[in-house]
Design a protein around this nucleic acid. Structure first.
Lengths: 151, 151
DNA sequence: TAATTATCCATGATATACCATAGATATCCA
DNA sequence: TGGATATCTATGGTATATCATGGATAATTA
């Protein structure tokens, strides 16, 4: 399955190492770059995670803005300028940079939250509230998935 | 026929293993990922079950929202963040995670309820009431099926 | 050479794969 | 049509492999 699913809380050791969930790694196993790409979320105190292929799709979406436009420039700077590529070590772990650990308020554990084509990394305690909020929003606002339009 | 039909009550052993009804497995036999995907229902005390293909369609529907938008984020968190992919063992069984067993109030048995392209897993006792409610609603409100929409 | 980073190895817990059995259903042949 | 046989399904138990994690050693780099 090439989607990121479920939520896994893994431990951050004292060197900043964390195991990327095995199922996430298989979802990325066909990619040239064996690792993940991380950058700060713009809406939450968490990190956004992508595979290499998804970063290219992100880039394509950016093309909907005019090149040299303020929006394009801002988005590109905020995403690509900040993004870090973190390769897996031999055991499927990455090393989280200290500034990203600080930003997401991570301490003992890192919660990998699968969101389909991307994922997020949260402090487990913070994510509890976020998950409840998301559930509530889906229920209250009656959010449903639009029928797929013909491609 | 690639539809989930009928209701089957199978036993949950002490390790949380349950046989997925054979007819459900046949409906999924053409998929690359041999297993099912489960997540909490947003409206009932039951689990929603899908095959891999349906999950990918869900993911594609999500793409109609802007990436990083609040709606996209909420739905992805509430669906993919909670979903678990459960592969069949050699005998067509899955292992139900403890938190999902709790959520659906399952004890001895799990009732697999075929709903066409998806299915649900209920506590057999709870489902009795739910079935009656559904029948009553259809009768009272005179619910009918709309014509098939053009693809 | 000291400090930092990367690679390698060990281990316990957990999940996966494997094997066995019984009951039910379907098939086949007389 | 009836009975025997074979097949498939559900279920239980056991052995094996994988994963997450910690530490140690080797390789870089300042």
């Amino acid at each position: 399955m090439a989607l990121f699913l479920s939520t896994y809380a893994n431990k951050i050791d004292r060197k900043g190492r964390v195991s990327v969930p095995a199922s996430f790694r298989v979802a990325l196993s066909d990619q040239a770059f064996q690792g993940i790409v991380l950058f700060r979320s713009h809406s939450h105190m968490c990190l956004e995670g992508f595979g290499q292929a998804s970063m290219e799709e992100l880039s394509n979406r950016l093309d909907h803005f005019d090149l040299f436009s303020a929006e394009q420039d801002d988005m590109a700077t905020a995403i690509f300028g900040e993004a870090v590529a973190l390769p897996f070590d031999g055991d499927g772990r990455i090393i989280l940079p200290a500034d990203l650990i600080d930003f997401a308020k991570l301490d003992e554990q890192a919660a990998f939250v699968g969101l389909g084509k991307k994922f997020q990394i949260w402090s487990p305690s913070e994510f509890g509230a976020r998950r409840n909020e998301a559930r509530k929003n889906v229920k209250d606002k009656g959010l449903t998935l639009p029928k797929e339009v013909a491609a």
